[in-house]
Design a protein around this nucleic acid. Structure first.
Lengths: 120, 120
DNA sequence: TAAGGTACTCACCTTTCGGTAAGCTGGATG
DNA sequence: CATCCAGCTTACCGAAAGGTGAGTACCTTA
C-alpha cells in the first residue's frame, strides 16, 4: 500500500547535499554509465562488445565504469576461465529495473537531440 | 504510425561518439542539471528557491546550468523588471516531457540509494 | 619464432568541472 | 550614509575526470 506520491526531497523541497541518492545518481548518469547500462539492457555482452558499442570509451574508463556499476549491484560480471579470456557482463535484476526507466529517457534524448542541439 | 521499437543506436548497436544525443544527455544528466529539472518539475521557481533546493550548488553553477537548459529549450526564464530583481524559471513544454521521464528515474534512485550505497 | 587476440592494470599527463570570493545594480531600509 | 537584497558575472585556482600508451598473461595461428 502506497501512502502519498513519494516526495523526492524532504518536506522543505530541499535535495540534501550529502544524500546517498546523489552518489548513486552520479554513478548512473555518468558520461559512460548511461551508455553501458543502455547497451546491457539488450542482454549479456562481452567486454569487447561494450568497448565497441560505447564508441569513444577508453579501456580505463570501461573498466572503471563497470566496476562502479558492479559494486552498486547493477551489473554482474561472469568471467570464464578460458584462453583467450572471455568475460560476460549483464544486468542484475536491480539493473533491469533501472534500465526500464533509463531506456525511455535516452530514447527521448535520442529523438529530440537533433532538433535541440543543431538548431542553434 | 510507428515502425519498429525505436532502436537507440545504429544498426550495429553502436552509440556513435559525435552524436548530438550524447551532448544533450550530458546536459540533462549533469550533476546539477538533474536536480534543477527535478525541482522545476514541481512548478515555476525563483533563482533563490532553486539555489536553496539544490543544496550545495554555487551561484556560478546555477547560472551555468540554467543557461544550458534554457539554450536547450527545456527551461524558460521570466525576468521581471522590478527592484530588487525577480526572475522566475519554469519548464517549457519540452522540459515537462523530459521531466516526466526523469522523475521516475530519480525516484528509483532515491528509494534504492540507501541500500546500494550504504551496504558496502 | 613471431605476431595476435582478449581482458585487463598502471603511470602519467591534460583538460574540464566546479568551488571561492569579489564585484555590480539600484532602490529600500536602518 | 551605509547596508542589504536579488540575481547575476568574472577571475582565479584546485580537484577530479578522463585520455594515452605501455605492459601483462596465456594460448593459438601463421
Amino acid at each position: 500500500m502506497k501512502a502519498a506520491p513519494q516526495p523526492l526531497a524532504f518536506a522543505d523541497g530541499v535535495f540534501p547535499a550529502g544524500c546517498p541518492s546523489r552518489i548513486l545518481l552520479d554513478h548512473i548518469t555518468s558520461k559512460w554509465g548511461v551508455l553501458i547500462l543502455l547497451a546491457l539492457s539488450e542482454g549479456e555482452q562481452r567486454w569487447s562488445d561494450l568497448r565497441r558499442r560505447a564508441e569513444g570509451i577508453s579501456e580505463k574508463m570501461l573498466a572503471q565504469t563497470l566496476k562502479t556499476l558492479e559494486r552498486d549491484g547493477l551489473v554482474s560480471r561472469n568471467a570464464q576461465p578460458v584462453i583467450p579470456p572471455r568475460v560476460d557482463y549483464s544486468l542484475t535484476e536491480r539493473g533491469y529495473e533501472l534500465s526500464a526507466l533509463l531506456v525511455p529517457l535516452v530514447a527521448w534524448a535520442f529523438e529530440n537531440a537533433d532538433e535541440i542541439i543543431n538548431s542553434k
